[in-house]
Computed example of a mutant assay.
Amino acid sequence: MAYTATSTHGGFNLIARFAELVANAKDAYARRAEFNRTYAELQGLSNRELDDIGIRRCDIKDIARDHVYCS
């Protein structure tokens, strides 16, 4: 009985890899911009406003990160 091994080589497909790299960079840039915007908005609130919505000033960075990267 004879067996034939066939394999296909996907190749480098450098253009697709570069396009994916560019797309990932754009996504990372957009997420970082959203993080900065959220962080700045929360930092701009007074202590009273933060207390009214139940946020401590020391938690702002975590809240902004969770909003952008965990949702």
Rank of each mutant, 00 (worst) to 15 (best):
I15N: 14
F35E: 12
L21N: 10
F18Y: 09
E41F: 02
T8S: 11
E20L: 00
D51S: 15
A33R: 13
F18I: 04
D52W: 02
I63C: 04
I63W: 07
I15F: 09
T38R: 14
E41C: 01
A40V: 06
A64G: 08
F12E: 10
A23H: 04
D59N: 08
S7T: 14
R32I: 05
F35K: 12
Y3Q: 11
D51P: 11
A16T: 05
D27F: 05
H9A: 09
A16M: 05
N24K: 09
T8F: 12
R17L: 02
L42Y: 01
D59R: 04
A23Q: 08
A64F: 00
L21T: 09
Y69P: 07
D62W: 09
D66I: 06
D59K: 03
V22G: 03
C70Y: 14
A25G: 07
D51A: 15
S46P: 03
H9R: 10
V22I: 07
S46H: 01
A16V: 01
E20A: 05
T38L: 15
H9M: 08
R17G: 00
E34A: 15
T6S: 13
S71M: 08
R37A: 15
L45M: 09
V22L: 06
R48F: 05
A5M: 12
Y39T: 04
Y69M: 02
H67F: 15
A64L: 01
T38A: 15
K26I: 06
I55G: 00
I55D: 02
Y69E: 10
A19P: 01
E41N: 05
E20P: 00
A5W: 11
A2N: 15
L21R: 15
F18W: 12
G54M: 00
T4P: 08
T38I: 15
A28V: 08
N36E: 13
N13Q: 11
Y69R: 02
